[in-house]
Nucleic acid binder design. Structure first.
Lengths: 230, 230
DNA sequence: CGTGGCCTTGATAAAGTTCAAGAGCCGTGG
DNA sequence: CCACGGCTCTTGAACTTTATCAAGGCCACG
């Protein structure tokens, strides 16, 4: 007897959208319910991947580390988002680290049972293809940012993204610490701090701790899209 | 009557590996044979994608441009390699530009017919998933390089990669111009040139034009993996 | 033999990182 | 309730890396 709780969660996951109900139950029967504390590692770069994960609640960050310990965050994943799929289709080893940012609940789907299901359900494959495509698109953006924009431009883009994610409201909260933000933007906390200060002084934003208010969205757009200088 | 030439090429493409023969013919019947001159654009960022492409011969580069015109190359694709797939599974628009580096022959596969085939052939879906996964892995590397390594480290990594690709021989040729190499490494030709000069002076490599000989592979490894300085 | 492309080299400037110090904040425990 | 230690964040100054600008060399091709 499968916990109906698990089925309910699975039904709400975009990756399993449009699947017939009995498949949801199959999935529930292979899912392994896992709980992690804030800071715990789900997997490390190079680990063998024997399946993939979907976040139920909480948040996971995927990141790379340099020799000196500098961190580059590749993604944050929240409820409903899958991660670790690359290792099941190709290469077998995880290309980066995964760590829980909060206390987090995760379903783990073992590879073989899942691939079986994929073979029998084209819908599921197409969902998966769409997810990987979306991720590729995101990476394309990240590469563009890292190589073609300077840090103020990346920060500006991120603030505009946050505004969008908050329904277009110009007043919102940072959902991550500034150090994590630095790591996401491919820089260090000091640099982020200095840029925040400058943006405040120039009246582009008003920020206090994690509270951000965008005062001059047009200016942010110029910074992010046209390489304008601070 | 389908040109048997097309079928032959399709059969040799990894993406269609393990497909039954009659599907190869179906594919051949929907493939559109295209020819481009060196320098021609296949598609531009933002264009609507109505299908995807596979290189038959020649070479295509996928890249992003900054406002000031700086170029970041994301991939080079050669014979047998598909590109432009992201737009058919998600988002509809190409996230980057595609341009032919040489005179190039390409097969174009229209979206709908291809998705049809995907739905009926799990093998094809799994091939596709593997390809997208490989690409994600490559991007992970690219992001790591751009954000976590300095330019000498990236160049070192690229030289070691070239050596590997040449069956481990320490003497080989650059397959792209140094300007293109700069663009691939996320920097500018001047910087690449200076680093080559330094590596030569330090006896790490011996290079003359496009001919490269690796003299101290261990040193290259340190540069690329341990952040050692030139 | 001249012209255009690509590559090299040097001087200079900008952006970002490192190092170091200190401010603000919060939960714990005396 | 206050003091303490441990965070994260901020700020300043020196330094490193890389980009920019400018000039000149090399070579292939017409």
């Amino acid at each position: 007897m499968i916990s109906s709780d698990i089925v309910v969660h699975i039904k709400s996951m975009p990756i399993f959208k449009n699947l017939p109900s009995h498949n949801m139950e199959q999935l529930a029967s292979i899912a392994i319910d896992q709980h992690f504390r804030r800071g715990e590692i789900v997997f490390s770069e190079g680990d063998k991947g024997t399946g993939f994960y979907v976040v139920v609640s909480g948040r996971v960050k995927i990141f790379k580390l340099s020799f000196e310990g500098k961190e580059q965050i590749l993604h944050f994943f929240g409820p409903g988002e899958p991660f670790g799929e690359v290792a099941i289709f190709e290469g077998w080893r995880f290309p980066a680290h995964a760590q829980c940012v909060n206390d987090t609940r995760i379903f783990f789907f073992p590879r073989d049972a899942f691939v079986d299901l994929l073979k029998r359900h084209p819908t599921l494959s197409l969902n998966m293809l769409a997810i990987l495509s979306m991720r590729l698109r995101k990476f394309t953006h990240l590469v563009e940012d890292l190589s073609l924009k300077e840090v103020p431009g990346r920060l500006a883009a991120y603030l505009l993204y946050l505004r969008e994610r908050n329904g277009g409201r110009s007043f919102f909260e940072l959902d991550i610490s500034k150090s994590q933000l630095a790591s996401l933007l491919g820089t260090i906390p000091e640099t982020v701090s200095r840029i925040f200060t400058k943006m405040n002084k120039q009246g582009i934003i008003h920020s206090d701790g994690r509270h951000i208010q965008i005062l001059d969205a047009e200016r942010l757009r110029c910074l992010s899209e046209e390489g304008e200088r601070l």
